[in-house]
Amino acid sequence: MADLTLTPNIPGGDDFYADLLAAHERLTKEESDAFNARLILILANHIGDREALSQALDAAKAKD
């Protein structure tokens, strides 16, 4: 059971962010929603740690 990483962890963060936006280019809103859902499921399976996933669900909630 690993703690969720909430410190910078992606080498070349700007490049990743650009890749993420590029993947959505020319997609309709509906296609983007479907893409995001598939991406979340793929990443969640890769993490595979229920404790880390619970922490991620919590971290993603809107904060005041």
Binding site: D33, A34, A37, R38, I40, L41, I42, N45
Partner: peptide, 20 residues
């Protein structure tokens, strides 16, 4: 529905999604 359809789409190509 979006997540349900995502699981079904992924299940065609990737084994990991089938148990979902």
């Amino acid at each position: 529905r979006i997540f349900r359809d995502a699981v079904l789409d992924l299940s065609e190509h990737y084994e990991f999604a089938r148990p979902l």
